[in-house]
Amino acid sequence: MPSPAVIAHRGYAGVAPENTVTAAARAAERDETAMIEIDVQPAACGTPVVVHDERLEGDRDGRPLTDATGFVWETPLETLRETRVLGTDATVPTLAELLAAVPETIGVNVELKNPGTRDLRAGESLPSDERDERREVWQAFVERVVADCAGFNGDLLFSSFCEGAIAALRETADYAAAPLLRDDLAAGLEIARRYDCEAIHPPRTAISGTDRVEMAEIGGSDTEPDIDVVTAAHDEGRAVNVWTVTNWVQFDALAAAGVDGIIADYPGLGEGSSDRVQRSN
């Protein structure tokens, strides 16, 4: 059984300051890394920057997210480029700066996180009379993102929790796309069909046969999903890339379930996975 492709979540956020040039460069040096996943939002001037949370204050596992405050999209680019991430010397990069640090042999999964609004409409399959409006919310930002990606010669995959972002991408450029799924698996699959997406990105706890007890512990259902998203996606010719894995036990379970890619916080989780899965079977 082939091992799934490894996608470095925010540049392996478990071992490096997430979404920074430092993280991306280190992740790209590892032979196992097929793709690096990053999050993009606009600075106050509209320039795409690589950062996950919509606000700059807060904490991640006891460390301050950054040494700045406020919404990302209200913060001047000059300030963001000097803003330190998670108590390190690494700073918030522009999308163009991060892509310049990634060799073309490594793909990049660009998650369209936020176009600069608190009204995201994430995780919804939109009614037909609202799709154009939500696409327009994203259009200008997506165009800026695509323009910054033009000089990158590696593989690009765009993902988002928001249908408006996927619609704007389809209006702008011919790149691979994937809806991010959360609670409503049917809605995510419908969005994938509506825009003929090349992949879907469900959470690992949505995959049939994985640990339902763990799902209950984080506030989800302890029952088996009513949709087999791996089979549904594969029957329609779509890849399944699952988020977010933190240990080799999770990696092996997802590999056995037949997913195509695993978005991982740590490197090395897939080493020996094929042999472990074969022995367990």
Rank of each mutant, 00 (worst) to 15 (best):
M1L: 15
M1V: 14
P2I: 11
V6A: 14
V6H: 09
H9C: 03
Y12T: 00
Y12C: 06
T20N: 09
V21C: 13
V21G: 12
A23F: 00
R26S: 10
R26Y: 09
A27V: 01
A27G: 07
E32P: 14
T33F: 02
E37Q: 11
D39H: 10
Q41Y: 01
A44L: 15
V50M: 10
V50R: 11
E54M: 11
G58H: 09
G62C: 07
R63Y: 07
P64Y: 03
L65D: 07
D67W: 13
T69V: 15
G70P: 01
V72C: 04
W73A: 05
T75Y: 01
L77C: 03
T83V: 02
T83P: 00
R84N: 04
R84T: 11
T91A: 14
V92Q: 06
L95F: 06
L95K: 08
L98N: 03
L99A: 03
P103E: 00
E104H: 10
G107Q: 03
L112K: 10
K113G: 02
K113D: 12
P115S: 01
G116I: 04
L120T: 02
A122F: 05
P127C: 09
P127W: 11
S128V: 15
R131E: 04
R131V: 13
E133M: 06
R134W: 14
R134S: 11
R135F: 08
R135V: 00
W138S: 08
W138E: 05
V142I: 07
E143T: 10
E143H: 05
E143K: 10
R144A: 13
A147T: 13
A150S: 12
A150Y: 06
F152R: 05
N153V: 10
D155C: 10
E163T: 07
A165F: 05
I166W: 06
A168R: 11
L169Q: 04
R170S: 13
E171D: 15
D174S: 15
D174M: 09
Y175E: 10
Y175T: 01
L180P: 06
L180C: 12
L181H: 01
D183A: 04
L185A: 15
L189E: 13
R194Y: 07
I200Y: 03
P202H: 00
P203C: 02
P203Q: 14
R204A: 14
T205G: 00
I207D: 01
V213I: 12
E214Y: 14
M215G: 00
A216K: 00
G220E: 04
T223K: 13
D226Q: 12
V229H: 01
V230K: 00
D235E: 15
R238E: 00
A239Y: 12
V240L: 08
W243Q: 02
N247K: 05
N247Y: 09
Q250A: 07
F251R: 09
D252N: 12
D252K: 06
A253Q: 15
A256N: 09
A256Y: 04
A256R: 14
A257M: 03
V259H: 02
V259E: 04
D260M: 06
I262Q: 15
D265P: 04
P267T: 07
G268P: 06
L269C: 11
S274V: 13
D275F: 11
V277C: 10
V277Q: 07
